[in-house]
């Protein structure tokens, strides 16, 4: 009944992620989203960068492209513009997307190209053993912030909105069913869609920040997340330290591949003159 999502996995499981790693939960949610969307496997392209979460493309039975750190959106943009028929997803970590990949991220938002981008935000560079990222909250510890992170962090929702994304949502690995729904809605949306999936990293982030293990971290999300519609009725003090989830923004604008078709039509028309 529920296990139909496993048909989207390749036969090279179990995966390499640590015990209790949120990446596994997100990959399950992603597979369930594809099931909801009922996409044909051959028409799906999944592109990832480098980092723990980016190993996801190795396990998914689609057209998969594991690129370089921070560059997934550049590869995906070229692929989508060249072959718009491909249902294109980009899956990256928080460092991958917001640090080294930040320039490609804001420009992909700006272009409004029909790509669904999932940023798995576990607040840390896990693969390299626990350094802070641009999404690590101030004050949190990391191997490169032994005295507490002094960097202010991005709010991916605000950043995406400022850069022009036309569907922006935030989910989390505790609300895993809801995360599938947010991903499916993102894919249904025509234009650049961003889903921030707040996730957990018990080994690199949890241990450095006094979490008592994987379950404790999921419990933290259970307690700290609050749905957007409830949050919008609360005053800011009450929202202190809360993680607001839901669909934050949805708007329509010309999709980038449609703009190409418009250009090509005018060129053809012009040529006939």
């Amino acid at each position: 009944m529920q296990t139909a999502y496993k048909k989207y996995f390749r036969d090279n499981l179990p995966h390499i992620w640590c015990p209790g790693c949120g990446n596994g939960i997100v990959m399950g949610a992603f597979a369930r989203a594809i099931e909801m969307l009922d996409y044909d496997k051959d028409e799906v392209l999944v592109v990832s960068g480098i980092g723990c979460s980016s190993r996801i493309t190795g396990y998914l039975d689609f057209n998969t492209l594991h690129t370089a750190h921070g560059r997934a959106l550049a590869f995906a943009t070229g692929a989508k513009v060249a072959e718009p028929r491909l249902k294109t997803f980009v899956i990256m970590g928080d460092g991958d997307a917001a640090a080294i990949g930040g320039n490609h991220f804001i420009h992909a938002c700006r272009r409004n190209i029909d790509i669904t981008t999932i940023i798995i935000n576990n607040n840390i560079y896990g693969m390299t053993g626990g350094q802070f990222s641009p999404l690590t909250p101030k004050g949190r510890k990391a191997t490169t912030a032994p005295y507490g992170n002094i960097d202010r962090s991005f709010d991916i929702v605000d950043l995406s909105k400022g850069a022009g994304a036309t569907y922006i949502a935030r989910g989390d690995v505790f609300h895993a069913f809801r995360l599938s729904y947010l991903i499916a809605e993102a894919a249904r949306h025509k234009g650049f869609s961003v889903v921030e999936a707040v996730s957990t990293c018990p080994i690199s982030y949890g241990r450095h920040n006094k979490f008592k293990g994987a379950a404790d971290m999921v419990n933290y999300l259970k307690k700290r997340t609050i749905a957007l519609n409830r949050a919008s009725r609360m005053n800011p003090e009450a929202l202190e330290g809360k993680i607001i989830t839901g669909i934050f923004y949805e708007s329509e604008d010309e999709e980038y591949c449609d703009a190409f078709e418009r250009l090509e039509a005018s060129v053809k028309k012009g040529a006939r003159k």
């Binding site: 529920q2 015990p19 949120g22 596994g24 939960i25 399950g28 895993a176 999921v218």
Partner: peptide, 17 residues
């Protein structure tokens, strides 16, 4: 409720009615 299955990072649990 499938909470176990949907939160298992390793797909090690299957709940079937």
């Amino acid at each position: 409720c499938l909470s176990c299955e949907v939160h298992c990072p390793d797909y090690a649990i299957e709940v079937v009615e």
